[in-house]
């Protein structure tokens, strides 16, 4: 689906939290904090500029504490931004939170919306009332989601008796029952087995394709990103450090290549000592080469000289290694501003 119009426009967004701080863990320090407390102003988000188009499946990733969840909370109107301008579906989410809510679906992978002791169907019906979903739309959507996710019997059982995968599928129905235009999925596949993950991903792709729903996904599971997303936004230290297509992420290290080589006879590891060897097993090796210093042709010629080669593959570095590299870049500027 070709993106046509922005559903999210964020410019110069920042969010500062005031957090009580204690330097020591001693009893004296605890008692003294009763009288005199130091606060740190933590810049959870800084100068975020972002645009997301209608129909996109966008990954919002970053290491723990990078600011992903804070970004989602500001975009959904849960948190009040310190500075910056935000437009979600054309309106400011803080001042129009209730009106916007009908067009938003949110799934927090680590929190449940379902009533624990009752069948999921009861929660769905409560959502129908809360979102004023007309009877025919409710039944049509419910049947569609139950069919796609194969939940015919599951929705009738008390939620506390469901497996994590089954519960997560029910959470998806809760988030999508009112046909939102924009859906935030916060770690939707956390703790799920491979089959449940596949089912959830297939479901997201189907809804995106058939209903044109825009999805924003935060996840630590890179296979979610590779399987689902068109574009990736990487947040680290509260700021955006990468914002482009998934293909661009794959070619992030334009000058670096991974050469997977299989020898006909075992070779000594010392013969590869001039290379950055990522893995070695005598008959095969995985080598990273930097083409800025030597062209690919001369690297290959050098490798051919080591021994008889049975097979050779040249790839871009894995997305995992790219992301690891992006995450490991230090933040510029001050993290904390201490105040009395």
């Amino acid at each position: 689906m070709k993106p046509i119009e922005p559903v999210i426009e964020v410019s110069n967004l920042s969010k500062v939290f005031r957090v009580a701080q204690r330097d020591k863990s001693s009893l004296l320090s605890s008692l003294s904090s009763l009288i005199h407390r130091q606060y740190a102003h933590i810049e959870a988000l800084r100068d975020i500029n972002l645009q997301i188009q209608k129909g996109e499946v966008r990954a919002l990733i970053g290491p723990n504490g990078a600011g992903k969840s804070s970004t989602i909370k500001v975009l959904t109107g849960i948190l009040y931004p310190t500075t910056g301008s935000i437009r979600v579906l054309g309106v400011d989410p803080w001042t129009n939170r209730n009106a916007l809510a009908s067009e938003l679906g949110v799934l927090f992978g680590q929190k449940t919306q379902l009533w624990w002791d009752l069948p999921a169907l009861d929660t769905f019906y409560l959502h129908k009332q809360m979102y004023s979903i007309p009877n025919h739309s409710y039944q049509e959507n419910l049947d569609y989601f139950i069919d796609v996710l194969s939940l015919h019997q599951v929705v009738k059982k008390p939620v506390r008796q469901l497996s994590l995968g089954e519960r997560m599928k029910c959470e998806f129905i809760c988030a999508l029952l009112h046909e939102p235009q924009l859906v935030f999925l916060d770690e939707p596949t956390i703790g799920l087995d491979i089959f449940s993950k596949e089912a959830i991903r297939a479901f997201v792709k189907k809804v995106n394709r058939e209903k044109g729903t825009t999805f924003i996904i935060t996840t630590h599971d890179l296979s979610d990103i590779e399987d689902l997303c068109n574009n990736v936004t990487v947040i680290n230290h509260g700021g955006i450090v990468f914002n482009d297509s998934i293909e661009s992420l794959g070619t992030y290290f334009s000058s670096r290549k991974i050469i997977d080589i299989k020898f006909q006879k075992p070779v000594q590891e010392s013969e590869l000592s001039s290379y950055n060897v990522m893995s070695f097993s005598g008959l095969s090796a995985s080598i990273e080469v930097d083409l800025e210093h030597n062209p690919l042709q001369s690297e290959l010629q050098r490798l051919l000289g080591i021994g008889l080669i049975q097979d050779i593959n040249i790839n871009n570095p894995s997305i995992e290694s790219v992301i690891k590299d992006i995450y490991s870049k230090p933040r510029t500027g001050e993290d904390l501003v201490l105040s009395k």
Partner: peptide, 9 residues
């Protein structure tokens, strides 16, 4: 409270 803040009421 996050869950309630994203409801239409």
């Amino acid at each position: 409270l996050d869950r309630l803040l994203i409801k239409p009421s």
